[in-house]
Design a protein around this nucleic acid. Structure first.
Lengths: 209, 209
DNA sequence: CAGTGTGAAGATGTTCACAGCG
DNA sequence: CGCTGTGAACATCTTCACACTG
């Protein structure tokens, strides 16, 4: 893969910038300065300019940035110009909420299939998304050439299911379980640990200003 | 507030350590080395030792760390020894999933009340948690002395509801909306932007090894 | 002598401050 | 003149490597 030399910290902020640029565009704004954007996204203006500059000279001195130009640029960078199909594994509590979840307004991300063990779910269409039995997971993911999975299974199944996902050719996993998954290199794992986040928030509450 | 001088990066890992220490304890292990722990949590062993050392000399040279001692220590540090009540604002799609969500096994975090505008929800008990109308929010939060809120309202209501929460005396907000909330200093906001995370994952997929 | 605790080096990220361009 | 783009300083975080100790 080509690493454009973009720092990770910068990469994580790109979706944030992209969303606010869309808001600006919808509001009919044609240009924006790093200072204006800074207020909305709560990122230092120097950081914004530095972030943008990694991609070349996107702005005009004395003017700011052209909103449309920036959106078009980031749309390609963030793969918003093509559809990404995502598989959801584990239609429980959180899983079914994510089936409904609007992963983007100008959506380029779509949950296209789900998998579960529960008899009463399998074979049904939940929120417009077909739910398959776990046995069909590897086959369906291969067939549909899905590269991204959302993992919302019980903790004890997290690693075995992950092993299957890797077999099926999955390249990225959004992991909602508290387990730190073991995967071959080349597989991207994004951990979203809600308990962890909440505990961290409470820790900050008590120990920081 | 007293900032113990613990780096933020360290603070964010504490819940992770805490959880794995509990797993070890349940498995009957009495001691653990930074190398062992490193494998499970996928954090460099030197980083673990450094993290622990901020809190003093918790380990024994040539032996490792005493699991029980470490758990007791972190339980206090993470406020696991006292119950934290949390209010949930917005019982929609994601909100109702979080009502069910087990925020911890040995739970010290509990969602104790929820708020929504929807007539058919208000006054009902959902998953054992009472749902109040939005008009009662400030009053109930004051009354129950709740300091932490989970914000799962539609984007356009995020800022106005936040202003109310601040009035009610909330100190920490777990923000599931894509809006970057404006709050007075002293209020901790933890942003959990699922679309953002997924987009970042997809970006990494295409641009990093 | 195994494994912690840590000085020092290195890597990464943020912010300042301003030269220079449109 | 206003605002970008960026060198340089600073801050934070990670990792190495090893002295030291139970």
């Amino acid at each position: 893969m080509k690493n454009h030399g973009i720092p990770k910290a910068t990469a994580k902020r790109l979706p944030l910038y992209y969303r606010y640029l869309q808001v600006l565009q919808n509001a009919g704004k044609e240009k924006v300065s790093s200072t204006e954007l800074s207020e909305a996204v709560q990122v230092d203006s120097a950081t914004i300019r530095r972030d943008f500059s990694y991609f070349g000279e996107l702005g005009k001195r004395g003017y700011g940035y052209d909103v449309e130009k920036l959106i078009n640029f980031f749309a390609v960078t963030l793969n918003e110009d093509e559809l990404t199909n995502v598989a959801l594994i584990g239609v429980g509590n959180l899983g079914s909420a994510l089936l409904n979840y609007r992963f983007h307004q100008s959506n380029s991300i779509r949950v296209s299939c789900a998998f579960d063990v529960k008899e009463d779910l399998v074979g049904r269409i939940v929120d417009g998304i077909p739910v398959y039995p776990m046995e069909d997971m590897v086959e369906q993911i291969r067939l549909q050439q899905i590269e991204v999975a959302i993992l919302t299974v019980p903790a004890q199944n997290a690693q075995p299911v992950t092993d299957e996902l890797v077999k099926a050719g999955i390249k990225g996993i959004m992991n909602f379980t508290p387990i730190r998954l073991v995967t071959p290199s080349g597989i991207q794992v994004q951990n979203v640990d809600l308990t962890n986040e909440l505990q961290t928030l409470i820790y900050f509450l008590h120990h920081y200003d």
